[in-house]
Structures are given as structure tokens and as C-alpha cells.
Design a protein around this nucleic acid. Structure first.
Lengths: 330, 330
DNA sequence: TTGTAAGCGTTATCAT
DNA sequence: ATGATAACGCTTACAA
């Protein structure tokens, strides 16, 4: 591989001038610039990134931490992130946390070593005061999940309003026995707290008491959904509707309803979350809440690149709109 | 960030010795080694990767080129690749070619610049004699798609046998009017040629003539599947079964069959490809061909790491077994 | 506008 | 077994 000295030799200018051409400095004699450019092209010269980094130049590698890439929501998010990065000359490196805090830390550590220049987190497994320490090594942008206080730029949809509108839709159809199924816990703080609050808000406003039997926590997969329906089926007092935290869980419920002979939406109405492609393939087609995945990915990448390039970006919430998509399960 | 000189100063040994400790050379006085190790831990020293690379050491970044990460087959493949990489201390960087040859070249170029140390290709958009030129910059492993001659290590399933068994299954159920739907072209060479041959082989053996009207090419998506069914519906002479190149196309057909009132499998039997999670969620559940995605990903990463670490790996086909999963659409 | 030279943090060669 | 020193390829004061 040719190096900068080869260019120097062949173009007859100094190393600094060549370097200036590489980094397109403004004040270079046009003829010299051209000569250098020509030589570089001829010999197929490409700057050695390792050397540039050693000298302190910024790199262009963005790490994206997702729980699992096979989750369609996250693969769509990553798709958008990678796409925007490609256009702007950045590479996307993907990390699956598998919801493991140690893995998350290991990934963050790569920023310390300058293996990665910035990180987009779509979920977080560690306390923020731990993650916080990594900010000195490079920019972090949250995308999807968020802290109550925006310590870093945060791209999100308003989850409280989203679940509020979803559950409200159920109430407006006359349901009063509404089950709730979340991927997180049903607590005041932590993961999915906003969605929980949206659910509670609707019930409170409608004067409905929460039935703890109808709260399902830590459900993620199709199998979880199937099990949930079995649990419901075994109840003497059954809910007439269920709001789920993911299309996949909803899919499991729908599949199992077929097996158990439970009619949807007559006996059980269902709302999913995300509007994955799958939502339209189910039968009956799934009512769900659509998140603007592409915009989220695009925005997150845009912000982190701006940070990396030294442009000012506020540490605020960038709230994107969601959409309730009503189909056949409600 | 502390550097090697800090370690030198604090441990009282020479730079070379510290370097030897870093790279665990065998012959160092145990007490010195320990002292150095202790200092490194205390000050949180981590070798600067850029400097190491500049000196010619190998990096640990593996690029994976996929057409689109949102395709579940590829997201599962990437999941497996990343997982294995993580265990072995390698990072996975993802590139979406979107089936664009220029993007593919740009990604390959990163290996030239040493931004990426090896590449796993799950598809290829350029002629092999072009891609071939990149072998001098680092190892390439094919995974999923393959060349007839294994110029590089190649992980695959036997697509010819897979489609052969799928179509044969149809024939054994009495079908003689069998449509065929592929993501590629229906030609002797190029993408999906093996699957095409499997289809042709069955028909030839069964003494069935190919009906060109029933060959659908370049179909990938759910929408494509929907359109295909409309085309079939408009025919005077309709096939009684269809072999598709992807579960997604099959899903489109199934969904549209519901709308058009076509009974499956009575009026039209369907086979998909991949056994994506979706296959079990469709109604009726999809008969399909399951590829060992995880093993494929694991194997590809294992091979490329071995190459990177200087171990000998044959340029041969690593053929993994597929499985015909019979469900309700046949 | 251009050139000289120092230095980024390592590893490898060569002595000792 | 250990240490001094020269690279690796580039950027950036500083000078001119």
C-alpha cells in the first residue's frame, strides 16, 4: 500500500502540503493541489486510518447497542441508522446486549479504547450514573428508551401518550376489563414506566379499578403471548381486552386463540405495539401502535454525527409522533 | 488516558518489557511481570489500538455484508455472527448492500484502508473477479450464497437439494401443476441457480413439463407474494401448488388467499423458504425449508477468525444440513 | 502558501 | 531476560 511519502516523492511537494490536501485545507496553490490529487489517484493512495487516529483525528465508527438484532423493531432501527451513517461516511457497528449489563459495559469500554467513536443506545441495562462515566470518552445518544432527565440527546416517542391512546381506544369501544402486558415491570420507575402510567391514567379517568391479576410483566416473545392467553383462559373472571407491549406477544395471543377457539376481537380485543410487518400478516390483522422507526434511527445518527463533528447539539428530548393503527383485533 | 510510558515510569522497567507483558511473551521474570500487571490495573491502562495497528498488528473488526438487515433470515445470521464474535473478542460491523454493487465495493474498500480486518459476505453483487482483488487486503468468507468454485471458505446449505426436496414433497402429494417463485432469475447461472435446478430436476424426473407462465422471478416481499397470487388467480390454467423462495413471499400469498377466498392447501399448496418465526404465525401454518442459520453464522465467524489468527483453513464448501418442515400449507 | 521537524503510542530489531 | 532505539504513517506547530 502506498503511503504519504510516496505521494510526496511523486508530486514534489512537502508532506505537510500533501496532508493539507488530504484534509482539504483552504489555502493551497490550485496547481499543487491538483498535482497531489492526481498522484494520489494514480497510485491509489488512501490515508492510513490508524495513523490518523494516533494523531488524534476522529474516527467514523458508531456503535449501536440493541438488546437483540432479531427483534424486528431493532433491526428496522439499525437499518435506518446504518443507512444514514453510510450516506455521511460513518460505519455502524452493532452490539447485542441481550439485556446483560456486563455486555453493555464491555461495549461502552470500546469507546474508552477509541475502537468506537460514539454510541447510540436503544436500551440501557446499567444505572445511568455508571453509563455517565463514559461520556468523557465520546458522545452517547439515547434512542427509543429514555431517562426522565435528558442528560444526553434523546430520541423517543412519547410512550405514556402512546399507551394512553391505545388503552383509551379500548375503553371507547366499551371495554372495562382491560388486561395489560409489558416487557418490563409494573412499577413507578424503570423500564416501561411511562407505558404503565398511560395505562393507569386511562383507567383512573374512566373510574376503572386495576385488577392485579390482569397485569402481566416481563413478556417479550410469541411463546410468552401464548402462555398469557392460557393464563387468561384459566381465569374465572376474564378480561375482554388486552393491551400488549409488543406485536410479538400479541401474535402469540392471536395464534393461541385459534387453538383455544377464542374469537378475536369478540371475546378478546388485542392491541400490539410497534406495527411490525407481521401485524398485517396475522389473522385477524393486528391493531397496534406504530413508532416512526426510520425517523428515530435517522435522527439519532444525525445527532451523534453532529456531536462528533463539533457542532452544538442540545441535551434534550427529540420527541417523534406515534400513530394508533386500528385494524381487526379491536 | 494513561499510556505505555506511564506504566514504564511507575513500574520501573523498560518499555520493551511492558510491551512484552502486554503481548504475553513467555520469557519475563515473574516478579517484573506481576509488577507491570499491577501498575496497569491500578492506573487503568489499556493499549492504544491505533498505535498497535500502525505497527502492523491485526485488528478485530469483522464486516458483514447483508442485503438488508431487516430481512429476518439475515438478522438471525448476523445475530449468530455477532454472538460468536463477542465471545472471541471480535467486533461485528454491519453493511447493508441493498443489492447495490457500488455499495458492496465501498464496503470492501474499508478492508483496503484497514478499517475492517475481514469480511463475511452473505450475498454478492459484483463479479467474483472484482471481489477477488480484495483478498490481498484481508480474508473473505462466503456465507449463504456461494460460487460454484470455492475460491474462499464458503458456508452454505445445499440449495439444490433443498429445493429438490421441497418440490418433490409437492409431487409426492400428487401435484403436477407446480409454480415456482424465486428472488433471483430463472437462468442457468447467477443467483439462485441451484434452487432453479432443484425444481427442474424434480419436474424432469416426474416427466412434467415446465410451464413458463408459472415461473415468477425477482420476488422478495410480502407485496410481491400478494401480486403473484393475483396473477395466478387471473389464469385460466392455474397451478395447484407453488414453491416460493422465501417465507415472506409465501406469507403474502397466504394473506391474499384469505382475501380472494382461495383455500389453502386445498386449492393451492405452498412451500416457503427459511422457516422464519413468522412461518408458524401464519394461518394456516407454513410448510417451509429450514436453514441452520445459527450454525451458519457461527461457522463463518469461526473460519474468518482462524484465518485472521493465521491458522490454516481450507478454501472449501462447508455444507450444513437443511430440513423440510411440513406444516399446514401442503 | 509552503516546508521542517516533532510527536502520537506502540512493537520489533538488535544489542547486552 | 532486558533495554535502547528505530520505525509505523500521519498531523500540526512553528518558521519562513
Amino acid at each position: 500500500m502506498p503511503n504519504i511519502n510516496d505521494v510526496v516523492r511523486l508530486s514534489g511537494v512537502s508532506k505537510s502540503t500533501v496532508s493539507r490536501v488530504i484534509n482539504n485545507y483552504p489555502h493551497i496553490a490550485p496547481d499543487k493541489r491538483e498535482r497531489v490529487l492526481k498522484v494520489m489517484k494514480e497510485i491509489g493512495y488512501i490515508p492510513n486510518v490508524a495513523a490518523q487516529r494516533l494523531r488524534g483525528l476522529n474516527g467514523t465508527i458508531i456503535g449501536v447497542i440493541v438488546p437483540r438484532i432479531v427483534n424486528p423493531f431493532f433491526s428496522h432501527l439499525v437499518e435506518a441508522i446504518e443507512k444514514e451513517g453510510y450516506i455521511r461516511g460513518y460505519q455502524t457497528i452493532i452490539f447485542q446486549s441481550h439485556e446483560d449489563s456486563e455486555r453493555e459495559i464491555n461495549f461502552l469500554n470500546l469507546m474508552k479504547h477509541k475502537q468506537v467513536d460514539g454510541v447510540i443506545m436503544t436500551a440501557y441495562e446499567n444505572d445511568w450514573n455508571i453509563i455517565n462515566n463514559y461520556l468523557k470518552y465520546g458522545p452517547i445518544v439515547m434512542c427509543n428508551e429514555y431517562l426522565s432527565e435528558p442528560v444526553v440527546p434523546t430520541v423517543r416517542v412519547d410512550q405514556l401518550m402512546a399507551s394512553y391512546e391505545g388503552v383509551k381506544h379500548l375503553v371507547s369501544q366499551g371495554h372495562r376489563k382491560i388486561a395489560y402486558c409489558t416487557g418490563g415491570l409494573f412499577s413507578e420507575s424503570g423500564k416501561d414506566k411511562d407505558r404503565n402510567q398511560g395505562y393507569q391514567k386511562v383507567l383512573t379517568e374512566a373510574g376503572i379499578e386495576i385488577n392485579p391479576n390482569w397485569i402481566f410483566i416481563k413478556r417479550h416473545t410469541v411463546e410468552d403471548g401464548q402462555k398469557v392467553l392460557h393464563q387468561i383462559n384459566d381465569m374465572h373472571d376474564r378480561p375482554t381486552a388486552i393491551f400488549t407491549g409488543s406485536d410479538e406477544v400479541a401474535a402469540g395471543i392471536i395464534m393461541e386463540a385459534r387453538n383455544l377457539g377464542i374469537r378475536i376481537p369478540e371475546e378478546l380485543a388485542i392491541i400490539g405495539f410497534d406495527d411490525q410487518p407481521l401485524a398485517q400478516m396475522l389473522s385477524p390483522e393486528l391493531t397496534t401502535i406504530k413508532q416512526p422507526v426510520s425517523e428515530m434511527g435517522y435522527t439519532a445518527m444525525d445527532i451523534i454525527i453532529k456531536r462528533l463533528e463539533g457542532k452544538a447539539v442540545e441535551n434534550k428530548m427529540y420527541t417523534l409522533p406515534f400513530q394508533l393503527v386500528v385494524r381487526k383485533t379491536t
